[in-house]
């Protein structure tokens, strides 16, 4: 019945329709918000809790015909005591702790340079954004597979012409870790540039003018004005990039498959290997939760730092 009124309401005059519609603001606002809330509950929160539940069972997809038992913390214990997981966790932490600071530094540097540039700024800005658009798989293919190919790649060809040794980009464990970071830096520094540039361009001008009047040097102004003002953005950017870096899998899957040995395997890749491909969904679920806990810890610490920063600067 309501529906017919709605349809009839359309040709009516605008002034009357509001009353006729009888859709109160309360109903209206919920109609708008509800789909998003329901989507999140059904597609994120419910699965999220489901995984937690599975991690307390011994469910294995290839153990056919076996009943699914509740085993308490057994899977968690075997995840936490697994050498395999220890290595992949350390790999992931190492990746985050190396790649993100490098991207941070390079991004800040390039953003500062862009901010100084007088000509061609929009060209550089647009061009530098490009790596962010490309799929990591394509980036891996271009840089990792083609240019860094140990035998027929361009980089080794140039290095050897210059008299250096052949670099085993992918088959030496330490170098492979570095190569993964290299690929990530090429792609994700763009995000840092973007964040820092936006922040630099929205900096207030007054402190600088005052400082110049006081006879400060450019370096002093950078150290005592720019850096503190960039603080919150720097932390936000690190938070977003860091959380993404924790989830890394595509670069690794396509470039090294986690090898050589286990040198580059990330936790997400382990979850895929054991839980999805190996069918051991109980173990995979517990391992996935380990990753979530690590990420939450990381986010918590950064947010704490952010709050402290804000408090210090406002005092």
């Amino acid at each position: 019945m309501r529906q017919t009124t709605l349809v009839e309401a359309r040709p009516a005059k605008v002034g009357q329709s509001r009353r006729r519609l009888e859709i109160s603001d309360v109903t209206f606002k919920w109609i708008l918000l509800l789909p998003a809330v329901l989507a999140v509950i059904a597609l994120l929160i419910f699965p999220f809790l489901f995984t937690l539940g599975v991690s307390f069972t011994d469910w294995h997809l290839f153990n056919r015909g076996a009943p699914i038992n509740f085993v308490g913390f057994k899977m968690w214990a075997s995840v936490l005591s697994s050498k395999y997981i220890h290595t992949t966790t350390l790999n992931t932490l190492g990746f985050v702790a190396t790649a993100v600071p490098i991207e941070f530094g390079l991004g800040l540097l390039v953003a500062l340079a862009l901010n100084e540039a007088t000509r061609g700024r929009s060209f550089f800005r647009v061009f530098f954004l490009m790596p962010l658009m490309i799929s990591p798989i394509a980036v891996v293919f271009i840089i990792g597979r083609l240019m860094l190919h140990e035998d027929i790649g361009a980089v080794n060809a140039i290095l050897m012409k210059l008299g250096f040794e052949r670099v085993m980009w992918l088959s030496d464990p330490m170098t492979a870790r570095f190569t993964i970071i290299l690929v990530d830096v090429w792609q994700s520094t763009a995000f840092m540039i973007l964040m820092f540039l936006a922040a630099l361009q929205s900096l207030p001008q007054e402190p600088y003018e005052a400082a110049i009047v006081d006879g400060s040097t450019a370096l002093q102004r950078f150290r005592y004005i720019t850096l503190p003002l960039l603080g919150p953005v720097a932390l936000t950017a690190t938070l977003i990039r860091g959380l993404d870096a924790f989830k890394v899998i595509d670069i690794i899957y396509a470039l090294t498959g986690g090898g050589p040995g286990q040198a580059t395997e990330s936790v997400t890749l382990t979850v895929y290997r054991t839980g999805v491909k190996g069918g051991d969904i109980a173990f995979g679920s517990a391992a996935a939760y380990l990753l979530l806990i690590l990420m939450a810890l990381f986010a918590f610490l950064l947010m704490l730092a952010m709050r402290r920063w804000v408090r210090r600067t406002t005092d």
């Binding site: 395999y84 050589p260 040995g261």
Partner: peptide
């Protein structure tokens, strides 16, 4: 059943030993 997991474990051990991440004995024990 579940042979891919057995296989992954062997390949991991082989790859770790060949890359000098662990001794052959250690990696095969794992």
């Amino acid at each position: 059943p579940g042979w891919t997991q057995y296989r992954d474990a062997v390949e991991l051990a082989v790859s770790r030993a060949l890359a000098d991440e662990a001794s052959p004995e250690q990696s095969l024990n794992d």
